[in-house]
Every structure is written in structure tokens, then in C-alpha cells.
Amino acid sequence: MSLTQTTALQVILFEGEPATPFTPDERKSLFRQILGRGFSIRRTSQPEAVSVDQRVQSLVVGRFHGQSPAHPGLPESGQNLVFLDVSDQPAANLADCVTGRAAELQTERQHFDHKSWKPWFPVIDYDRCTNCMQCLSFCLFGVYGVSDIQQIQVQNHDNCKTNCPACSRVCPEAAIMFPKYKAGPINGEIVNDSEIQREKMKVDISSLLGGDIYSLLRDRSDRAKSRFSKERDSSKALTERQKCLVKLQKDADIPPEVLMSLPSPEEIQRRAAEASAKAEAAIQANRQRQAANPDPE
């Protein structure tokens, strides 16, 4: 199931008439457990806050004592709006009861399984981005693409390699963020001038490595293959590859598991060429567009 082929499920704690409000401790338990299962949760006492959206399913939880919340603005129970009366549930069972029902709905409607993917992907700061396409050229995994108007964008979030911030290192404007990264400015901290200089220095990754990155990987791998064929020692070949990648890992903070899972050198070259061609095409299209519609300024 792709990331975007799913509908959303949210839990609404309804505490308006005729429902009896939950205690703060009950709320804490409910919020914690429901968030822990990956669902959104909202507390409201206003019937009009319970809306029906075809793309969002709501589980409305309350101590209704057998009565439906009567309000002209409140829709009736249906496919996208499910009521759960927990009047009879003791406080100790409350959270389990609600998360259990939410899990049932998740299965019935094939809602997204929140634990299946760590949301790690680049977020572009378009106040800084100059649409230079460096990131598109660099990424081997097809995370980036261009919009209809040739503007860089993140298109395949789940292609991104978890904990790898390498593309943000090649951005000359420090415009690429990974909100879950440990340090600034990649984590979204304000970018200062000295950091810009630092980031600019990292743009030319090939010079950092003393040569073209893809050639380096290919050459090292070829040498490793050669040694492997001569010595029939797979562990030595692996060691060679690891040595080659240590510098890249250190300079760009790329997790070793990402480097070790890179495709074959031939595939790397193919993908790199494909990404470069995409970037070049976008740059050319932008030039043509600008030539046709020059900026009045």
C-alpha cells in the first residue's frame, strides 16, 4: 500500500452535551495510548467541531449514556463517522476500549499502518531554494522530482533512506531540512551566514572525496571484485568497500547501512545519469520559460 493510498482516522473525545466530561487523568491516558497507536486525537465539546469529510474517518468517543449528542449540526453515524459510547467502561479499561475500536476501524478501512515507516524525508525551504537542481542530480533514489512548472519538489517521500541527510549537504543554500535530524540547520534551525559558507564548502562532494563520487565507488568496487576473484575471500572485498565508504559516511553523515545497501556500481551510474538528465531537462525548461516570460524586475 503506498503512502498516499490511505484514508485518515482520527479519534474525537466528545465532552459536550449530553456526554459527561472525562477526568484529566482519563484524558491523559486516552491521549497517550491513542497517540501511541499512531492516530490523531482531538478534544472538543462543540458538536459543530465534528465534521464529516469523505477522506477522514472520525471515531467519536464519549460518555453518552445511551443518548446521541443532539445538535442540528452534528451528522448521524455513518461510514465516516462512528460513535463509541464508553459510559459503562471503567477508567482502567477506557483507553484499551478506544484503541481497540480504532484498531478495528484501521483494519476494516485499510488505514495506514503507522508503525510501518519512519517518516524521514527532505523538506524544502522555498524561501531559500534557488531551484538549482543539485539535490535532484545528487539523489540516487528518486526522492526528488519537478512540478508541472519545473520547480523542484519532494515526490517520493518513502524512497528516502532513513537517517540519511546527504542531499541537504549538497544544497548550496541550506534549503533542505530533515526535521528529525539531530543538528542545525538541517533540523530546521535558522540558517546563519557562517553556516551557509560551511554548507557551500560541502557542495562539491567529489572534491571532498578527491574525485568523482560515483567513479570512486565504481573503482573501489571493481578493485574489490578483482581481489575477490583472486583471493576468493569475500570478507576482504567487503572490508575494502567499507573502507571506501567510511570517508563518505563521515563527511556527509550518511548511515553505514545506507552506504552498504547501495546498488551495483553500474546501477549507481545509471541512476546518477538519469537524475542528472532530469535535472538538466528541468534547468533547460526553466531557462526557456524565463526567456519567454522575462521577469519585469
Binding site: F31, L35, R37, G38, F39, S40, I41, R42, R43, H114, W117, P119, W120, F121, V123, P179, K180
Partner: peptide, 8 residues
């Protein structure tokens, strides 16, 4: 309102 993870 609380969401499990805004990035997700």
C-alpha cells in the same frame, strides 16, 4: 488536537 507525527 494532537497528532502522532506531523511529518508522517
Amino acid at each position: 488536537q494532537a497528532v502522532s507525527d506531523l511529518c508522517e
